[in-house]
Design a protein around this nucleic acid. Structure first.
Lengths: 200, 200
DNA sequence: CCTACCGATCGGTAGG
DNA sequence: CCTACCGATCGGTAGG
């Protein structure tokens, strides 16, 4: 059976192993710091073998970023619900974003955030459309907080500050015993929305 | 005359040119992505010549980070004044931090922020003491805002969010014609402190 | 600070 | 997917 579009984007099998191993190495050492040999060896292959699955190292990076955007957009859309009140919608977006960038094994989006310049211009241009879709979801949620009076400052700038503060957590957050991501989400929500609302 | 400590930390002369050129290249292409040849050529040297001034590429990175911390701490201390009210102190810290990370030619701290893992463990351990000094200044200013009731959430977490949001601006901020860094500072201050205070 | 060069490692390929 | 290999480039050095 031919490889369907869904299977490709799910990155199953050996190819998927390479994508996941590369994501971890790109995150730890950066795109230039992670060699094809290191990627191959981390999945038990010889140095030339990943080129059976990918035409180039660049294409592996593209696959990592595409998989990150696909998973991220899927998880994010799953918590969007126009019936929620603004604060609860925001809380869910924060929780899911922190899991996307901080949870163990979720290396795709951190690689995208911190290796974006390693993508060829053409790939950047193509992938930015999906990034924009991600931003639109956040912007809509923040606009609603603004309309409700929970946030009072320019909502576009608010989105950049809030997502920036979270994205920079990649550089300092160290997971502790017992999933404290939920606690972290509450701290983030509490900080940006003030003390008006109780934490779940 | 022997090179004094002050002259070393000021990075004057040819050595200083290498440090500044390397900072720019490290910022644009990353530590691993910027070759010694590229650094040498960007100051009109041949590929082996930087090694007359530095023992290794790693030592250039160390010099970049040290120069960034030295300049950053100097500029930051210059705006610290215990007689200022909390909000005005915060505003000045934001302004100086944005100039440190976003102003044209100030590549040192961005290199530190986004290439920290490229430093050897021993250098990280040594440099972290100066980083901590920087954080202490910020923490004191934020603690005061907390004591004054301007901020109401855990001040340590507040520092991480505020500095994180600013530091991530390195990835998206594009300077426009006519220095808008001052306007940016006002937006940042306005966002984090709410609309209580007027912008200068 | 240049010239000329080193061994190591890089991404990538051909043939099986 | 492995073996064996390629040219290019890397950080770094010796001698002047």
């Amino acid at each position: 059976m031919a490889r369907t579009k869904k299977e490709i984007s799910n990155e199953d099998g050996r190819r998927g192993e390479i994508v996941r191993a590369a994501a971890k190495l790109f995150r730890d050492k950066g795109y230039d710091g992670a060699s094809m040999r290191a990627i191959a060896n981390s999945v038990g292959m010889q140095c030339g073998s990943p080129f059976y699955h990918f035409a180039s190292k660049q294409d592996i990076l593209v696959a990592v970023v595409e998989e990150g955007l696909r998973q991220g957009l899927e998880k994010t859309r799953a918590v969007v619900d126009p019936n929620l009140d603004g604060i609860e919608q925001f809380r869910r977006l924060v929780q899911v974003h922190l899991s996307i960038i901080l949870e163990d094994g979720n290396d795709f989006i951190p690689v995208m955030l911190y290796n974006w310049r390693c993508l060829d211009d053409a790939h950047q241009r193509r992938l930015i459309a999906t990034k924009d879709e991600y931003d639109r979801i956040w912007q809509a949620a923040i606009d609603k907080l603004y309309a409700d009076g929970v946030l009072t400052k320019a909502p576009k700038f608010a989105r950049l500050m809030i997502l920036g503060a979270m994205n920079f957590m990649v550089t300092w957050y160290k997971p502790r015993l017992g999933g404290d991501l939920h606690a972290m989400s509450n701290e983030v929500v509490g900080f940006f929305l003030g003390q008006a609302q109780e934490v779940a």
